[in-house]
Design a protein around this nucleic acid. Structure first.
Lengths: 175, 175
DNA sequence: GTGTTATGTCAACCGTCCTGACCTAATTGC
DNA sequence: GCAATTAGGTCAGGACGGTTGACATAACAC
């Protein structure tokens, strides 16, 4: 039944697979990989500028959303970023110490800390968004059927359905 | 010239900015934010499945590219992922120990370690890519002007120009 | 045989997240 | 008015995924 040259179970399990995956309509390799590379380079734009301040990506995200929605409270920020207050803490402190953000006690509920950018924080945030917008603009310009709405719809469709309401709220100002 | 109620320089620097940024054609907030949220949820799909194996995103990326290009050498992987061999080391070791990958000495140059998936590694990689492809498919279906080429072109345009050759090479198989 | 290349490994460090526990101040409910 | 809850902050300890620098080994190139 089984000769000396047969593979036993261990051999089969550890055998290399030499072929690349077959084309399959359930496997969209091009778009999966392009999304990965595109995001990598999209993020890299900002990283360089942030490094000058000793900031990382966490600082970038906080700076961005506070600028977008001045007067945001800490709880809202935690909700958007989906991190814990323990991990937000140091990032927020550094941004306040560096003079990019200020915290103001809430006028009605004085437990709340309303978050505002300073002019310095606004300037940095705008600069970062400009870099990223420039890359997006360049990418759209290179397309034949340059349909900005299609791309917006595509990206929106990539968001988890439960989350779309939250994101829509954030976008209410401009579309 | 300056009365007691005027702001001095320190006050100006630390003054909160109350207004949201003005609309500006150089600031594409919607697409910048949608790209952020879309990538976050795109990645989250896989995270859950990876957790069952005690793997993180680094494992995912290695698993993906080795499956895409069986026989890849370590140096190629480092080049694609843009990380150091010191940080790749433990990830690779874990994937070999768990039986998802195997390393085989290069047939010509025996210093090289050719990386292959096992059937187990292939299965996991396919499963992960299927999840992500499903989300992309859903996003495309929701668009009126459902132009797959536009989206591919857009994402390609987002990649750093110097990098596009490398990515194109990776895609040579299917577009 | 010497120099270079492909890979691996040790050590120390950083950023960004986590959980759990605890604190203050302010608001709310009864 | 007092107790419970809420908003926020903080300390401790740990995990992961990355970094740099230095060094080791094996194999190839000339």
């Amino acid at each position: 039944m089984s000769g000396p040259n047969d593979l036993n179970n261990d051999d089969i399990a550890s055998a290399p697979v030499y072929q690349a995956p077959e084309p399959d309509e359930d496997l969209d390799f091009p778009l999966v990989e392009l999304f990965f590379f595109a995001y990598r380079d999209f993020i890299a734009d900002a990283d360089g500028m942030l490094e000058e301040y000793g900031f990382g990506r966490a600082h970038h995200r906080v700076l961005h959303f506070v600028n977008r929605r001045p007067g945001m409270v800490v709880a809202e920020l935690l909700d958007i970023l989906r991190i814990t207050k323990q991990s937000l803490g140091p990032v927020l402190r550094q941004l306040v110490e560096s003079g990019h953000l200020v915290q103001i006690a809430g006028p009605e509920d004085r437990r709340q800390r309303l978050l505002y950018p300073t002019q310095k924080g606004r300037n940095l945030s705008i600069q970062l968004t400009q870099m990223q917008s420039r890359r997006i603009k360049g990418a759209i310009e290179g397309i034949k059927n340059s349909d900005r709405e299609s791309i917006r719809d595509f990206l929106f469709g990539m968001i988890e359905p439960d989350e779309r309401e939250l994101v829509n709220g954030l976008m209410e100002q401009d579309k």
